[in-house]
Amino acid sequence: MAHRWGMAIDLDRCTGCEACVVACHAENNIPISTPEQAATGRTTHWLRVDRYYEGDFPDVKVKYMPVLCQQCDEAPCEPVCPTYATYHNPEGLNVQVYNRCVGTFYCANNCPYTVRYFNWFDPVWPEPMQLQHNPDVAVRMAGVMEKCTFCIQRIKRGKDESAASGQELADGDIQPACVQGCPAEAMVFGDLNDPESKVSRMAESSRATRLLEELGTKPKVFYLERGR
């Protein structure tokens, strides 16, 4: 049976520490924005932590929400791409093929979650950070769109290793960088086709919800609401 990768994020556990963001940057060769770029809105974080504030100072509550590509089953970005740079892979992931992308921006405009990021310039890393590039992940040139892949390179490696060793993939064998890096264990990754996996069970939780579900995009990222 084919895998169907999904993620669950327990917002009750999320502390907003952004370790996931750092892990994602390191794993996926995401360029690090300068303050000037950030000021012009040109940051790139495949995974970002959105902050929502409640109440007035000094009585403020901050709520954190890690937002990454929701890997929609019916992704609005897919039908609008003229070159099939973004399409669905057999395991239900929204795949971004950098080589096919001509940069029409249409996918990003049609993404209700605004999780698509554009390479405004060729990427640069401050010395010596270019030395820690992950060889499994392509560095993207100026002019192409990119986004979270659920660490597809890790999924691939996990499946290869299981095929080589003859051992079935167990739940939790494959972990995207963000999940691995989360100290609060707020993020869980797994196979939604396996009813026993942790992510499937969390998706069944009464607290589980999906972002902008009403748009009919059928995301594969589940958010577990805060307990009240």
């Binding site: 089953d73 019916e74 992704a75 897919e78 039908p79 399409y87 669905h88 892979n89 057999p90 239900g92």
Partner: peptide, 11 residues
């Protein structure tokens, strides 16, 4: 559209 069939996830 049929010589190179792309998986569209239901679409």
């Amino acid at each position: 559209q049929h010589t190179y069939e792309v998986i569209t996830g239901g679409m």
